[in-house]
Simulated scan of single mutants.
Amino acid sequence: MKKYVFVLFFTILSNFVLAQNETYAEKLGFPKGAKVIIMHVDDVGMSYDSNIGAIKAVEEGVATSMSVMMPCAWVPGFVHYLKNHPQIDAGLHLTLTSEWKDYRWGPLTGKSSVPNLVDAEGAMWRSVEETAKHATADEIEKEIRSQLDRARTMGFEPTHMDSHMGTLFARQDYLERYFKVGIEQKIPVMFPGGHDTMIIKDGAAGLTLEKAQAIGKMLWDAGLPVLDDLHNISYGWTMDKVKNPDERTLQKYKTQKYIESFKDVQAGVTMVIMHCTSPTEVFEHISDSGNTRRGDMLAMIDPDLKKYIQDNGIILTTWRELKQRRDKVK
Rank of each mutant, 00 (worst) to 15 (best):
E260Y: 12
I215F: 09
A222F: 02
P279R: 03
G236N: 12
P279N: 01
C276L: 04
W220L: 07
K243R: 12
M218T: 10
H275I: 07
V226N: 11
K241C: 00
Q251Y: 01
H231W: 14
I233P: 01
Y253D: 11
L224Y: 05
W220C: 07
R248Y: 09
Q213I: 11
K252A: 14
K254P: 10
T270V: 09
W220D: 08
T255W: 08
L230F: 12
M218E: 09
Y253H: 15
T249K: 08
L230A: 04
T255L: 03
I259H: 15
M274E: 04
G268S: 09
Q266N: 13
L230K: 03
S261K: 15
V226Y: 13
G268C: 09
T249F: 03
T255F: 05
M218I: 03
E210M: 11
P279S: 01
I273S: 12
E260K: 12
H231M: 09
Y258S: 06
F262Q: 05
G236H: 10
L219C: 03
V265K: 04
S234K: 02
A267P: 15
D229N: 13
S278Q: 11
S261W: 15
G216N: 12
T280Y: 06
Y235K: 08
D240C: 00
W237H: 14
G268A: 08
S234E: 07
Y235W: 11
V242F: 05
H275E: 08
K252N: 13
V242E: 06
V242W: 03
K252H: 13
S261A: 14
K241Y: 03
M274Y: 03
G236C: 07
M271K: 12
L250R: 07
